[in-house]
Nucleic acid binder design. Sequence first.
RNA 1: GCGCUCGUAGCUCAAAUGGAUAGAGCGCAGCCCUGCGAAGGCUGAGGUCGCGGGUUCAAGUCCCGCCGAGCGCACCA
Length: 556
Amino acid sequence: MLMKRRIAAMVGKAATEAQRQGALPPGPVPEIEVERPQNPEHGDFAVSLPLKLARAARMSPMAIAQRLAPLLPTEESILEVNIAPPGFLNFSVRQQWLQAQVEEVIREGERFGNLSQELPQRVQVEFVSVNPTGPVHVGHARGAVLGSGLASILAAAGHQVTKEYYINDAGAQMSAFYRSLYARYLQALGREAAMPENGYMGDYLVELGKEVASEYGERLAGMPEVEAVSATGKLGLEKMLALIRADLSSIGVTFDVWFSETSLYQSGQYQETMELLKQTGYLAQREGAIWFASTLLGEDKDNVLVRSTGEPTYFASDIAYHRHKFLAQGYDRVINIWGADHQGHVSRLKAAVGALGVEPKRLTIIISQLVTLKQGTEAVRASKRKGNIVTLRELVEEVGADACRFFFLSRSPESQMEFDLELAKQQSADNPVYYVQYAHARIASILRLARERRLNWSGGDVTLLVDPAELDIIRKMLHLPELIETMAERLEPHHLPRYAMDLATAFHWFYQQCRVVSSEPSDHAITLARLKLVDASRIVLARCLSLMGMAAPEWM
RNA sequence: GCGCUCGUAGCUCAAAUGGAUAGAGCGCAGCCCUGCGAAGGCUGAGGUCGCGGGUUCAAGUCCCGCCGAGCGCACCA
């Protein structure tokens, strides 16, 4: 059990015991929160319960702290408790316990940091889901990295996670894509063909058109137009998806499921969903269209599900998709990551999910703010239709996958960011990611040297690790499981890069302070102990890097 | 106009749940390798946490107002 939990339990018990003895007046005890003080002088953990109890108990916080402290079972020889004004209970772990944790880390190896949930959830994380009408660009990269990082963290926290990509392969945008590609294909064959209105003007479609032309020649052009458009489009869709998949996997973003919107119609799930909605009484027919009466559920307005043309809207298929997620697939929890431009869609989808009889709380939608592109001082709007986008591919080529991941992973989803490719290129050279990876490479180098000298540190005596720099690393390593817990609870992967930096700093400082591999015979024992610590540091650092989806290099 | 999100160091961003002295990277001024990787370590300068109220023992964090930015307010997705 995490030390944090143990302390919370101890304090809770002490509080009820104090009330039983009459040392504290009876009354409800608030949930006990265990914090990590910033200032090391305040120990390793802090509890501010006395401050919170003071008013109700009509006692000074210090007095409460003084009555609670003796009731805490410190004889475990793990913890030391101090009372600090204005009423904190500060806990410090004992050195021996810290030292022993080095063995613990090594024992757990690459599983270190993993949590086991009493009630593991089946969680689906759906993210990116870029329309397959064009390549992935920088804006999407943010959600992609966020989603994959979040999925790793939830899995580490003990949940069963599925990463899913929703392919919007139906609807008006897709048909515009089909027609655009068909025009480009004809043009590639040297024929006159006008681009459709609202067509996709990007160069990538010109390329795609040429590709189709070189692979299929005149064959498609010879077909009746409707069939030709459809056949060309389907080829284009497959090619586009392959491209998207490849680009995403170049920054370590992969999916377990690629779910097709069209399949909702083919499998009858769409029809079933509409039937279900009809039964709930939330459907309304008016002006020739079918509406979802979301105003009945407190929404600002109703929304069209089926246009007067008979065509379903995106909203309709999205409801069917979410019925699929919850009712067919049976996920306990679904997390969608959307760009801020879809923010207006959040509450109505939740309302619709509720109408299907699913507790809306089971659906979490994380809105990540859009990335605004900048060229010098000028803001540029990224548009797939107009074709002025910085693609993910360009970004990865210029900046590198690891730097790219670290960059996006470091920022909280709600931060609005400006992205300047020139600046990103320039910054990639001194990107903090290398600081973390350098620590790992340095460790690998130390361990290489030790092996060359035939040193076996498995019997190293951890009680020799007493230098503040050594103890600092151990303390820092032990933060990881707690961090995974809070990141999983709050769905905030962005704490991880910073933690990795902190851990690397602790290691670099240790390296500066303590000679690890020493040739002095009298240093043999401490050398083995330190090698053990270095090995443990490697494990934790590598775990961070792997959770972030980045390489843990042995050399740089 | 209404709704959602954001405003922290010169720049890019943190601050875990409301906690004790607001941090890091880059940039800037210095210092440290004749033993394990200097892509490193150390020191320093740099802040009215957009502005004004409020709640609280305690507010960058919660509430209200104002200013500013992004996004949304379709029978688009």
